[in-house]
Design a protein around this nucleic acid. Structure first.
Lengths: 345, 345
DNA sequence: CGACTGTATGTCATCGTTGACATTAAAACA
DNA sequence: TGTTTTAATGTCAACGATGACATACAGTCG
């Protein structure tokens, strides 16, 4: 039985793609000489170079990077970025930062998504590694990344973004989550607030917990120890952020301020607050479009910087695989725009 | 003179990467047999298969896709998406749609940016073609794409997004720009508005003009022929959308309604309107986060659908390069949320 | 003038994988 | 038992580019 061609069909091109040999034939030289011209290296007569370049132009020659990379030990100039949820604008901004930084080093970015399914993470990553990506940038979503340990030993740098890896030695870049919420809460406390709620939509466990930790710590500093009443951490399928807020406002002693744990929560909270007559202070985590126009105070940061930093880490790792893993924290800053500057009643 | 290795250095991996031959050696079979096992094809004894799989696992073998693709005529499973400005969330949503659709066909997406510099478009595209991308998706930004004609003839499908290509036969997917603004303007006219302004920040010429065309046409239908007084089309470096609005409101007969030509303009207009006491109706083009929370009416569409459609086009083109170019229009829809439903004074 | 230097070019092998074809051995059959 | 069939595996070449090495020829020098 003859073995089948690859599954995906492709209409045969009108003319075959030119190779070094084709160009050489037309220019009356060997493929190697053409290669020399293309690489711009060693000695070639100006006349020969001219003839070769003309032939290359005629045949629309383009060096085959696949072949070149294979020759060079299958080291490509492509870096993969694996995201969970592509529709989250946060990741896009991160991707933008990555792409820009990689481009400065002549590297390309492959974008792949796991569709927020932890089980597909390994599958997606494996597929990318078969493509011989030079390095791996990822937002870990599975509960374990130990499956990458072998690849790491084989020399593929791995940098985790937004959350650290689990059971894998890898560099990581995360936000100063805890400091971010702590700063927001402290600002509210300075304004006299004590009943401060924390609302967070389903978020990755790590960022979720870190932001909650900062919230609790800042309140503890102010002498408020029992914060659980004001915490609304929604699990998938639970109440929405908007419902949580309605619920909070209906309490006997409703919160005078609300901190949202991520942009999805902000959206829900703002929806609910606009329906209500109460004058509740609000600070969100994550900036969003027109937040300034509407005077919404937020804990912001630069997602592009997250990406850029991750890309820098990965590039430096390509040159030096040795040394302990590095963990970088991207600072956040509180942007006061009014909604978070209302004093306690 | 010995020729230099490629510019980018890479620390040598601790252990070399296993090949089919390595696995074969360990399993006591030839590389070809291992290949058969990996491809899951033709006849291999269960015992041999077992031995091979065990050896592969031991050596952490991973098929080298570079070599495979080279063998198969350098046809990769990677599609490139070239964007001008990565920081525009619009493109991200498009990219998300593309990635998702391509993944359904086992294809990967490389994302590359031209940083909104028309001159770099050709350079970026050429670099991608050397990577032997299977197809090209792009938001054209240069004033001419004829440099791709040769590549098209060589069998690389090209699909343009958001704007058609210039001097190149290629499929394209664009928004129903003209219909979108026309619908918005007609809605305002029905509410009694006649003095309707159109504000647009620097935008790509094509979408810009199309949206303006729809605006003019709808007004002409209502008998308003001289619209230039209400048109504020900003060139790069000119007045901001916010300034334009202040300017408009200072007129003797200020507009009673404003339509924004894109999301950047919306942002500027809303900033200016919030400062002013006037009760001006407003409809934006492009939806944005929390627009619903703030009751902003917009002409919306699904950017992901744009991407998905483009990906579908490109996939179908891979199977059949013949046939005339296809031009798909993604419909828009007016989402009334209040700001655009204020009657004329 | 012959040995030597250096420049321009060519030949060959290789990167890892897989079709085409060859070979081996066991099973099936006359 | 000898011949044919079939399954399992191996050998080889090729995809395109490029290092290592070889060759050819012009120019230089003692």
């Amino acid at each position: 039985m003859p073995e089948a061609p690859p599954a995906v069909g492709l209409a045969a091109p009108a003319q075959p793609r030119a190779t070094l040999a084709d160009v050489g034939r037309l220019a009356g030289v060997s493929a190697k000489t053409v290669s020399r011209v293309v690489l711009g290296s060693s000695s070639v007569t100006p006349e020969t170079r001219d003839r070769v370049l003309r032939a290359a132009r005629t045949l629309r020659f383009r060096p085959n990077h696949l072949a070149r990379d294979l020759r060079y030990g299958s080291v490509t100039n492509t870096v993969a970025f694996v995201i969970g949820d592509l529709t989250n604008p946060f990741y896009f901004a991160v991707a933008a930062g990555i792409e820009r930084e990689l481009a400065r080093h002549g590297l390309l970015m492959i974008l792949a998504s796991t569709d927020d399914e932890p089980e597909s993470e390994k599958r997606v990553v494996e597929a990318l590694l078969q493509q011989r990506v030079r390095a791996l940038l990822m937002v870990p979503i599975a509960s374990d990344q130990s499956y990458l340990e072998g690849e790491r030993q084989l020399g593929t740098p791995v940098v985790c973004i937004d959350r650290p890896a689990t059971n894998l030695i890898a560099d990581s870049v995360v936000l100063a989550n805890s400091d971010g919420t702590a700063e927001a809460v402290r600002a509210l406390i300075r304004l006299g607030h004590r009943r401060i709620a924390f609302v967070c939509s389903p978020a990755a466990l790590f960022t979720h917990q870190e932001r909650l930790r900062g919230y609790r710590q800042a309140l503890r500093e102010a002498g408020v120890t029992d914060t659980t009443r004001w915490e609304r951490l929604e699990e998938a399928g639970g109440a929405s952020a908007a419902d949580s807020v309605r619920d909070l406002l209906a309490m006997a002693d409703p919160p005078t301020a609300i901190v949202a744990g991520n942009n999805r929560a902000s959206s829900g909270v703002l929806h609910a607050l606009r329906e209500s007559a109460d004058d509740v202070a609000f600070i969100g985590f994550d900036d969003f479009e027109l937040a300034d126009a509407y005077g919404i105070s937020v804990v912001a940061y630069d997602p592009a910087e997250l990406g850029r930093t991750a890309a820098q880490l990965v590039v430096s790792r390509m040159d030096d695989l040795t040394g302990p893993p590095r963990h970088v924290e991207i600072p956040t800053r509180l942007i006061p725009r009014g909604s978070g500057e209302r004093g306690a009643p």
